[in-house]
Structure formats: structure tokens, C-alpha cells
Amino acid sequence: MSEQNIIQAQSIADVLAAIPALLGYAPADSAVLLCLRGARTGLTVRIDLADVTPEVAEQIVGHATRDRATGAVLVAYTEDEGQAREVVRTFTEALHGQAIDVREAQQVTATDYRDLLTPGVPVRPVSDLQSTAVAAAYVVAGRAIMGDLAATLPQPAPQAAQDTARRAAAAHAAEHADEPARFALATWRLANAGLVAGPTIYGHLAQMLTRKATRDAFLVCLTTDEGSTLPEKVIVGLPDEETATAARNATLALTDVAHARRPGEDGQTAIDVLAQVIAHNPNSADAWAFWALLTWWQGNLAGAREGFERALALDALQGLARVMYAAVQSGYAPGWIQRQD
């Protein structure tokens, strides 16, 4: 799933050129479903070819229906034409079952792309895609395309920096055992403002993120207007209605169509800060889960899925990851994307 309606595609070459830029990396061994609402793009979902089954296709198409899709483009990234056609057949059956028209179906290999719907259309070299207007527009916009999904994930910091962060996390836990929320909001805000950084800060944040009320307060910071005092109330973790409502509303701002809030620049800034927390504390399941949630909010389904998987591999009981992983697996979109016309 990805950011919507950035570039107006005029041809299938434009669409194929846009997909890697929308995902942030060049897909491989993947199926991509791009939903259309009339002439506009909607939900975009990538799934590993090995995971494509009739049941999974029906789940994903169910989200396409809720996204008000009237048509779809299917792309299979594989060297095996037989596999590509089977993937297209599986998704086409599910799409037609929901009265969604398949406008295009393409196979993309390392060297060429071919039309799987219309016989007689010549196979074209993938090098053609780099010369499209869409590809040029993304270059001008500075949209980076990684070689694969792994390259888009937080990368480990040098071991010495990780060691410093680990010691800082342990020291913070010992010093603030009785007041775990102390300094948390200030540290979070200063880090997002670019005023503090470094292994010690990232170690402190990793320890702070182990507490659910702190994670809730950080999310409230991103979903309420500047100057709101709700984060200060939520981080205390009092079991009262106001605290519960504020935390619930922050979640609804991401997930619910009626209450949806589109992420701003502060959302990407928070993702960048969390990436540094993970880089310095790669075994922090809570940091991975929070990073994945905000990545999903931005519309990056593939990155979110990987982030939640990393969190669950580190801690199978991590609550946020357990709740969100199944939804992301099935292609569930954040509320602001679902709400778009």
C-alpha cells in the first residue's frame, strides 16, 4: 500500500514505472494489486508470490471493495510466466467476484514486461520504464528507490554505538524505576525537533518505549493539535475515562475512516527518530512495533508488515504487533486512505 495519486499515469508503462517509487523499493517475487477509483489510484498492496492463495486474494480484494475500487491493475514480478498467469487468475477470480474489473495484468521480469491479458502485444524491455514521464517526475521529486525491501528498513548502528545505547537504557531503567514516565515526553519532543540525538538518547527512548502508556502518549503527540495537554495526561497512565478516551482517539485517528487524520511531516520525522532507536537497539520489539505502526500510517504496507514481523520475532507477546499484524497481512489501509474519494 502506498501514497496515492502522486503522478497521473497515462499508460501501463507509467504505472509500472510508478510502482517501485510508490513502494520505496523494487519488488521481486511479488504480486502487486493497484486499485483504481475511476481514473484515480487507490489502495496498493504488495504480497509475496508464495503467499498468494484464493483465500488471501479474497481477503485483499475485500479491502479493495471497501476502498471503493472499480477497477484494478495486477502485476506479477517473476521470471516464471506460468506462475505469473496463475497469480493473475487467482486475483482475477476474486476481483470479478466483487464486480471489480481487471484493467491490466502484467508480468515483469529482470529484463522485460509483458501483457498477460491481450494476445499479440509485444514484449517490451524494462529499460523503457526508466524513460517514462512518471519515472522522470519521481527523480525530480527526489523519491529514492531501494534495491529491495530490506534496504528500506532501519539498519544497525556500529556496535560501539549499540553498546552505549544498551548501557544508557539499563541506566535509565534503574534510575527511573519509580518514575518511568519522567523526562519521556520531553525527550521524545526534543528528539523529534532535532535538538537531541546520539546513542544515549536512543537508549533512553528504547527503555521509555517498553511502557505502553508512554507509547500511547507519543502517539497522542502525533494525532492532536500542538499545545494539547493530553499527552501529559496519557503518559501518567491513570485508569480514568479521559486517559482511555485520548488513547482510543489517537488509535482511531490512524484506523477509523470517520476520525481519520492524515500523517503530516511530524509523522515521517517520528519514523526517522524510531529508525535511529532501532538502529541503536535492534532487539527492541517495542520500537519495531511503534515504527511499524507509523510506517503503516504513512501507507507503507510492506515496510509495516516487515516491522511487525521483526517485533513478533523478538517478542511474540508484543501487544501492538499482535493486533496489527493480521490486519496489515490482509491489506487493511489506514483510515485516511480509505476515506479518499
Rank of each mutant, 00 (worst) to 15 (best):
residue 174 A to V: 02
residue 249 N to V: 00
residue 168 A to P: 03
residue 310 R to D: 05
residue 181 A to P: 00
residue 285 A to E: 09
residue 74 L to V: 06
residue 17 A to N: 00
residue 191 A to Y: 01
residue 238 L to S: 10
residue 114 R to P: 02
residue 2 S to L: 02
residue 143 R to P: 03
residue 144 A to K: 00
residue 213 A to G: 00
residue 58 E to K: 14
residue 241 E to N: 14
residue 307 G to P: 06
residue 297 W to A: 11
residue 113 Y to H: 10
residue 187 T to R: 12
residue 292 A to W: 01
residue 275 A to Q: 02
residue 137 A to D: 15
residue 171 A to N: 07
residue 211 R to E: 15
residue 5 N to H: 08
residue 232 E to T: 02
residue 145 I to G: 05
residue 22 L to H: 10
residue 267 G to W: 14
residue 305 R to C: 09
residue 333 A to R: 07
residue 218 F to M: 03
residue 157 A to C: 13
residue 248 R to L: 06
residue 119 P to L: 05
residue 12 I to Y: 09
residue 98 Q to V: 10
residue 329 Q to L: 12
residue 26 A to H: 11
residue 226 E to R: 06
residue 123 V to Y: 03
residue 218 F to D: 06
residue 216 D to H: 05
residue 131 S to K: 04
residue 262 R to D: 04
residue 15 V to Q: 08
residue 187 T to N: 13
residue 130 Q to R: 11
residue 15 V to F: 01
residue 69 A to N: 07
residue 162 Q to F: 02
residue 110 A to F: 00
residue 144 A to P: 05
residue 282 P to Y: 07
residue 173 A to G: 05
residue 13 A to T: 01
residue 20 P to D: 09
residue 161 A to E: 13
residue 65 T to V: 06
residue 38 G to Y: 04
residue 179 E to T: 12
residue 60 I to A: 00
residue 186 A to D: 15
residue 257 V to N: 01
residue 197 A to H: 15
residue 189 R to Q: 15
residue 70 T to M: 08
residue 51 D to C: 14
residue 79 E to P: 13
residue 253 A to Y: 03
residue 75 V to L: 15
residue 159 Q to Y: 04
residue 56 V to N: 12
residue 35 C to F: 04
residue 128 D to W: 00
residue 211 R to H: 14
residue 65 T to E: 14
residue 281 N to H: 03
residue 98 Q to E: 13
residue 128 D to N: 11
residue 253 A to G: 12
residue 174 A to N: 02
residue 119 P to R: 07
residue 335 G to M: 10
residue 23 L to E: 14
residue 253 A to M: 03
residue 235 I to R: 01
residue 77 Y to A: 05
residue 35 C to T: 15
residue 219 L to H: 08
residue 269 T to L: 12
residue 196 V to T: 13
residue 272 D to Q: 15
residue 52 V to H: 11
residue 49 L to V: 06
residue 263 P to M: 03
residue 38 G to C: 01
residue 305 R to I: 02
residue 3 E to Y: 11
residue 321 A to D: 09
residue 131 S to I: 05
residue 156 P to W: 13
residue 37 R to M: 06
residue 156 P to G: 14
residue 321 A to L: 12
residue 225 D to S: 08
residue 295 T to G: 12
residue 313 A to R: 06
residue 259 H to C: 08
residue 53 T to V: 11
residue 256 D to V: 04
residue 58 E to N: 15
residue 244 A to F: 07
residue 196 V to P: 08
residue 71 G to E: 02
residue 190 L to S: 14
residue 135 A to K: 04
residue 172 H to I: 00
residue 4 Q to R: 09
residue 86 E to A: 11
residue 160 A to Q: 10
residue 58 E to L: 15
residue 312 L to I: 02
residue 30 S to W: 08
residue 118 T to N: 07
residue 39 A to F: 13
